[in-house]
């Protein structure tokens, strides 16, 4: 059911407007080595609590955001544009 995700460009919007990609990890350098790449492509920490994820505001501004979500409560505390210096807090 309806839960809202804050978008730094559009304000709070229902999650149906967004697409989640997964953990917000930095892409390794091309020559970082197999271990670093396997880590990036396959391995996830799965912490209980605070977690940062990439979400795309697909039916909105079409910007990629880093969304802070609590994996235990699903509560979203805020988001920021993946590159532009803009962020938003949850209602």
């Amino acid at each position: 059911m309806a839960s809202l995700i804050p978008c730094p460009h559009c304000g709070s919007r229902p999650k149906e407007e967004f697409t989640v990609k997964g953990a917000a990890l930095a892409r390794p350098a091309p020559d970082a080595g197999t271990a670093a790449w396997i880590d990036y492509v396959y391995l996830r920490d799965n912490p209980r609590g605070a977690y940062e994820e990439y979400w795309h505001h697909t039916s909105g501004c079409r910007r990629w955001l880093v969304v802070s979500r609590n994996t235990a409560t699903h509560e979203i505390s805020g988001s920021r544009d993946v590159v532009l210096k803009l962020s938003a807090e949850a209602l």
């Binding site: 059911m1 309806a2 839960s3 809202l4 709070s12 509560e75 979203i76 949850a90 209602l91």
Partner: peptide
């Protein structure tokens, strides 16, 4: 019937 994140009530 429900209270959801973002203070949304259904």
């Amino acid at each position: 019937f429900g209270w959801y994140d973002g203070n949304v009530v259904g």
